[in-house]
Simulated scan of single mutants.
Amino acid sequence: MRLALPLILVLPLLALPARADDAYDACLREADASMQDMGACGGAWVEREDARLNDAWQALLAELPEDSQPMLRDEQRAWLTYRDQTCLFYLDPVEYGQIGRHLSYPSCRAFIIAQRTQALNEILASVAPM
Rank of each mutant, 00 (worst) to 15 (best):
Met1Lys: 11
Met1Ile: 11
Ala4Leu: 12
Leu5Cys: 13
Pro6His: 08
Leu7Tyr: 01
Ile8Tyr: 06
Leu9Asn: 12
Leu9Thr: 06
Val10Trp: 07
Leu11Tyr: 06
Leu13Trp: 15
Leu14Glu: 13
Ala15Glu: 10
Ala18Ser: 13
Arg19Gly: 15
Arg19Phe: 06
Asp21Tyr: 09
Asp22Ser: 15
Ala23Ser: 13
Tyr24Pro: 00
Asp25Pro: 00
Glu30His: 12
Asp32Val: 07
Met35Pro: 03
Asp37Met: 12
Met38Arg: 14
Met38Tyr: 02
Gly39His: 08
Ala40Tyr: 00
Gly43Ile: 02
Trp45Gly: 09
Trp45Glu: 09
Val46Lys: 12
Val46Ser: 03
Glu47Ala: 15
Arg48Met: 13
Arg48Phe: 08
Arg48Tyr: 13
Glu49Arg: 15
Asp50Ile: 03
Asp50Glu: 13
Arg52Met: 08
Leu53His: 10
Ala56Met: 03
Leu60Met: 04
Glu63Val: 08
Glu63Met: 04
Leu64Lys: 05
Leu64Asp: 04
Ser68Ala: 13
Gln69Ser: 08
Gln69Pro: 01
Gln69Tyr: 01
Arg73Pro: 01
Glu75Arg: 12
Glu75Tyr: 07
Arg77Trp: 03
Ala78Tyr: 03
Leu80Asn: 07
Arg83Pro: 02
Asp84Glu: 06
Gln85Cys: 02
Leu88His: 05
Leu91Gly: 02
Asp92Met: 04
Val94Met: 11
Val94Phe: 07
Val94Asn: 12
Tyr96Lys: 11
Tyr96Ala: 14
Gln98Gly: 11
Gln98Trp: 04
Gln98Met: 05
Ile99Ala: 12
Ser104Val: 01
Pro106Glu: 03
Ser107Ile: 00
Arg109Asp: 00
Phe111Lys: 11
Ile112Glu: 15
Ala114Asp: 03
Ala114Phe: 00
Gln115His: 02
Arg116Glu: 05
Ala119Trp: 00
Glu122Tyr: 07
Ile123Leu: 15
Ile123Cys: 08
Leu124Val: 02
Ala125Pro: 00
Val127Met: 05
Ala128Met: 08
Ala128His: 10
Met130Ser: 14
